[in-house]
Amino acid sequence: FHHAAAGEMPIMCFVGNRGCIQIHSGPIKSVKPMGPWINVLDETFHLHLRTDHIHEVWAVRKPTKDGHVTSLEAYDAKGGMIIQFFGKRHEGEGERED
């Protein structure tokens, strides 16, 4: 998060549950760790991620018609996905270099 914020890298963040998926697309600015939480406290995006609930983190390369894209995925102890991150891109574009 700190690297993405410092470099003003636009990211895509997917957080879901059985009812819906929240997607953030764009840069992040204000990253504030507090206890077991990593918080993003931007004007148009708030994220509160409990790091003590993360059991595994994977970097995954996914094939697409535009080439591979890489995601960073966090899972809980039961194997449930907590959150996914990608570099922001549009369909028809390749993966960002940064």
Rank of each mutant, 00 (worst) to 15 (best):
F1D: 03
H2N: 14
H2S: 14
H3R: 11
H3Y: 10
A4K: 03
A5W: 00
A5P: 00
M9T: 09
P10D: 05
I11Y: 00
C13P: 02
F14A: 05
V15C: 04
V15I: 13
V15Y: 03
G16I: 01
N17H: 09
N17G: 09
C20L: 09
I21E: 14
I21F: 01
I21N: 06
I21H: 02
Q22F: 14
Q22Y: 12
P27N: 01
I28E: 00
K29T: 08
K29Q: 12
P33L: 02
M34P: 03
M34R: 15
G35M: 07
G35K: 08
G35V: 14
P36V: 14
W37N: 07
I38A: 02
I38V: 15
V40W: 00
E43A: 11
E43C: 06
T44Q: 09
T44D: 14
H46P: 00
H46E: 10
L49E: 06
T51M: 14
I54S: 04
I54D: 02
H55R: 11
V57G: 04
V57K: 04
W58T: 14
W58D: 14
P63N: 15
P63E: 15
T64A: 01
K65E: 13
D66M: 12
G67E: 05
G67I: 03
G67T: 06
V69C: 05
V69E: 03
V69F: 09
T70K: 05
E73L: 02
A74L: 10
Y75E: 12
A77N: 10
A77F: 09
K78Y: 15
K78G: 13
K78F: 15
G80S: 06
M81H: 12
I82T: 08
Q84T: 13
Q84M: 12
Q84F: 01
F85H: 01
F85T: 04
F86V: 02
G87N: 10
R89M: 02
E91A: 07
G92E: 12
E93Q: 11
E93M: 07
E93C: 05
G94D: 07
E95C: 02
E95D: 13
E95W: 04
R96P: 04
E97D: 09
E97S: 09
D98L: 01
D98N: 07
D98Q: 11
